Structure formats: C-alpha cells, structure tokens
Amino acid sequence: MYLAELTYKVIADTDFSRAEKAIRQFHEALIFNGNVIGREFPTAWQQDSFCCRLVIPTTDALQRANISPRARQAEQQLVAAGLAYPQLKVLGMDIMSQHNSNSMADALVLFTTFSDMCSPLRNLADLAPLPLYQLQPAAGQDHETLIRWQIQFQALDEIQQQEQRVLRKAAENSLQQLNSSLNQQGRKLAKNLARQNKLPVYYALYSGSSKNCTTEADKPCPGCGENWRLTTPLLEIFDFKCDRCSLLSNIAWECQPP
C-alpha cells in the first residue's frame, strides 16, 4: 500500500458545502471500486485548494484507466462544484498497511478481520490482499456490495473480540454459522466473484468457540457433511478445506493450544 495526496484546486466560485459533497462522492466511488483503502480521509483547506491524504493499493490505482464509470461521473461533479480534476502525488510506501500479493493467483479466498485495512479478497497462495479494482466485481459496475459486506463483517468481528463484549453471542453466531445472513451473503459474493473472474474463490468461515473441544478437530464440513480436515494447516491458519463447498475454516480458537 502507498500513502498518496490528492489536491483539488478551486477553479470557479464554490463553497465548503458544495466542495465537500463533491469530494466525498468522488472518494466514495474510489472506495467502492477498490482504488483507495479505508473510509476516512483527512482533508484540509489550503487557500486555493483542498488537500486530502489517503492510502492506495498500488501506485497506478488512480490512473483514469483503472477507475470506474461511477468515479468518472463523480469527477464531473467536482468540476460542477468549481474544482479541478484532482492532482495526485504518491508520497511513498505506507509502513502501517498490509501489502499486496506479489504471487500469481490460481485461487482466491474471501477473508477479512476487524483490524484489516485492505481488500477482503486474498491470494490463496500467500493470503496477501489483491486490489479490487484489478478484479471483476461480483455484480454491477463496482465492488460496493463486497465492501459493504466487509464493513458488516468487521463490525461484528470487533464486537465479539472485545474484552467487555456486548451482544457477543449474536455477533459470534453471525460469523460462525454457515447459514447466517452474513455468511450467506459472503458465500454468494464468493461464488459470483469466482464466475466473473474465472478463478476458484473460497469463503473463509470463522470459528472462534466450540461446544466440544474434544471433537472440534474432527468436525465435518458444515456444507456437505464430508471430511475436510487438512493434514497440514493451510497458510498456518486454515485447518479445514472443502473443494466441493469452496469453504475454508479453522479449529475454534478457544480449542487450540496456547
């Protein structure tokens, strides 16, 4: 990931409200296409321009060839609001972010956690994220549905990770149960992404707690009921893999040795 700066020069009469709305809509379009990472971008007024700092997955992520039709439409709203097209300056590699995979992807996994600031689509070879703008969306002209799923997943994951947990079981059930609304949506996205990109896309099913740690390691695939235990954990995280159901999972964290 890279830290970048976008500068919006004022070229006609405007006001803070119009400028803020146009800049926000443009940023949202970039978020939902995977051109930028995160959801909060500090923006400063600098006499004759607005300056914003953000994180991008690659140095060429904001080239016009890589942005969506929705982002191009939002660019026109910038002009209507009295702003020039943004000028990009890449400041350097962001040392606080996860970095993209450098390996060829033969298969992907839909995997995220509450602390991630990256694409939820990972290369199954190394679990490193892949820039969404380089991939075909599950549906529509961008990845908005996928990003909104990630936001919900991360919110529930953060709730059930807290020491003083509120609604812990409700959050954990949404993450763990194969047929929860959250996981049904995620599995559908993975299936559509596989079809659109002509690559296998596995869904990472979270497992935090278990009713019986004695039998946890031998639990069958929740999709087809078959044996899916791996001899060696995949990527040192996933103990289970079902090619039929395109599922990955782990032995419940509370059942693993300290």
Rank of each mutant, 00 (worst) to 15 (best):
C118N: 09
E144T: 03
Q134V: 03
Q150R: 08
A138M: 07
M117A: 09
A139F: 02
L135C: 10
A105N: 06
P69T: 08
T59K: 15
L83Y: 04
G140M: 05
Q46K: 14
Q87I: 08
L91M: 13
L110F: 06
N123D: 13
P137W: 03
M104L: 11
A65S: 15
V55C: 05
T113S: 13
L130N: 04
Q150M: 14
H99G: 07
L91A: 13
N66M: 02
P137H: 04
C118P: 01
W45V: 04
A80Q: 15
L78W: 01
Q150K: 14
R53F: 11
D94G: 09
L110E: 06
P57N: 04
S97W: 02
D94A: 15
P42K: 06
D142Y: 05
N35F: 01
I147F: 09
T43C: 12
G140C: 08
S68A: 14
V36G: 02
S68F: 04
M96D: 13
A44F: 13
I56E: 02
G38W: 01
N102P: 00
S103T: 06
I56C: 05
S97C: 13
A71P: 08
L62W: 03
Q87H: 11
D60T: 15
V79R: 10
D116G: 12
F50L: 09
Q76K: 12
Q46H: 07
Q136P: 00
W149K: 01
A125N: 13
Q87M: 04
L124D: 06
E75Y: 04
P86T: 07
P57E: 04
F111G: 03
P120T: 08
R70M: 09
G92T: 07
A74G: 10
Q150S: 10
P57R: 05
Q73L: 10
H143P: 12
Q141P: 08
Q98M: 11
P69K: 08
P120V: 05
K89W: 00
C52V: 04
H99K: 11
M93Y: 06
